[in-house]
Simulated scan of single mutants.
Amino acid sequence: MRPLDSAVDAVLRQRRPDPECWDAVVDAVCEDSESWRADGVLVQAGPAVARHADRIAASLRRKQGRYGTAVGHGVQVRTLALAGMGDLRALPGLGALAEHGGFPSNRPEARVLAALPAADLVRALLIKMGRDGRDTHRNTTTLELLALCGAAAAPAVDHVAGRLGTQFAYDALRVLGRIGPAAAGTADRLVAYATGRDPGARREHGRRAAWAHWRVTGDPELALDVCGTAVRSGSGSHGLPFLADLGPLAAAHADAVLGLTRSPGGWTRAAAAYAYWRITGDAEPAVPVLLAEVDPEWTGNPAMPVREAVRRLGEIGAPAAEAAPLLRGILAREDRLGHDYVGTRILADDAYTRTLTEALARLGPPPGTLARQP
């Protein structure tokens, strides 16, 4: 068995470390070695430690105590480790953390909870929202998780709407839009935010509120007006994702969107290329723009839209097949992304490799691969 420090270094650095390295990490955590490094990588492990799920679940039960209500760092680590593999035995720990404190506030770590069934996660988040007040970290993390739950977050509509008029309004608007028709009762408030009439409305709220209004009512007029006006001005890059979601409904704005594919900003170019394809179905202008953003030496720096460009090429599918050799080469690399802080490095790299894998599956098989016979 490898020494613990060596094992932790290996799983942080390598995409495909020796399984014994993960074994050493699990041993350290379950034997209460009090290694913050081992704890930090275990919460990021996900399916990589699935063969140890029974042991981690047993360790969680011990940590929770006889009545299952104990909380603390140890409960959080084991709960996140199980949640990352989608193991339902994380739910008792999650419920205790939601009710008694210790629910993860680190947003990248908290996202692993989205591997659990959305309905179960929403129940825990409702408990948490009822006790949090207006704590900044807890509210932003909770709202992000609810957005990931989509329509399943409908039971939280009143709680989310209560965040309008606070510093969490921008995140709350996203959640309401993701919930969709079940949030139709907030439509008038969304109009007030989109038009700036609500006293709590800020300039950055308008486009997202207009998009959310379309999502909850099915009426695209306000979103097309607000987001289209911003994009036609040449300075409304933040309206591009919403026009992309509207798709062919935004056809009147296609030329303005195409013009933004020549923007000096990489994020704007990538968003415009994807939006143009979504609106028109024409991949020819979009693919070269997206492909140019896929830097094979990318370290994970969020200033560059590399992962987003890969995802969008995958959505385009066969018309973007020329991207496949580049993506296969990136996926074959042994080293993880190096930009992210070690506390999220595995999560960031695993997300990137999933994006690459999913994109390649949509782009089609490598040349010379025989089609499977029916």
Rank of each mutant, 00 (worst) to 15 (best):
I56F: 04
R138A: 13
E31K: 09
L327T: 00
I316Y: 06
D171S: 12
L60D: 04
A153E: 02
G65F: 14
H205F: 09
G93Q: 06
G338T: 15
P367F: 14
A48T: 09
P3V: 08
H339I: 04
C21Q: 09
A115M: 11
H73Q: 05
G185A: 05
P117C: 14
D282A: 09
Q44E: 00
D198C: 12
E31S: 07
A286W: 11
L337W: 05
T217F: 04
L148Y: 02
A50H: 07
A210L: 02
A184I: 12
H52G: 03
L327C: 09
D335W: 13
D87L: 04
T344D: 15
A348P: 07
E297A: 15
H238L: 14
G95P: 09
L113R: 09
T136R: 13
E293R: 08
G317Q: 14
M85Q: 10
L145F: 02
D335H: 14
R207N: 14
F168N: 01
R89M: 13
S237T: 06
L326S: 06
L360S: 01
V43W: 09
G300W: 00
Y276F: 15
V231S: 04
L121H: 15
A351M: 09
A114K: 12
P117R: 14
G133F: 07
G314L: 10
G329F: 04
G314T: 07
V112F: 03
A53D: 00
H100N: 15
N106T: 14
Y341W: 13
A57C: 10
C149A: 15
S233R: 06
A53N: 00
M304C: 03
H52T: 02
L327A: 03
M304V: 08
A7P: 03
T344L: 08
A230K: 11
L143A: 05
G95Q: 15
E144L: 06
H253W: 12
R51E: 06
R202A: 12
L240P: 00
M304R: 15
Y341E: 14
P374T: 11
S35I: 02
D282Q: 11
A223G: 03
R262T: 12
P181R: 07
E293K: 10
R138H: 13
P366A: 15
R178H: 11
L121I: 11
Q167F: 10
A124R: 08
R262I: 03
L143E: 01
G196H: 06
R123C: 10
C30Y: 00
E293S: 04
R2V: 01
H100D: 14
P199V: 13
L12W: 06
P319Y: 08
V175C: 00
D5S: 10
A58Q: 09
Y276V: 08
G317W: 09
P117H: 12
A50G: 03
A272N: 07
A172S: 05
W277G: 03
P248M: 05
P288I: 05
E20R: 15
A153L: 08
V49L: 04
A45K: 02
L360Q: 02
G101H: 12
L121P: 04
R189D: 03
I346V: 14
L347K: 00
G162A: 14
A251R: 11
A172L: 08
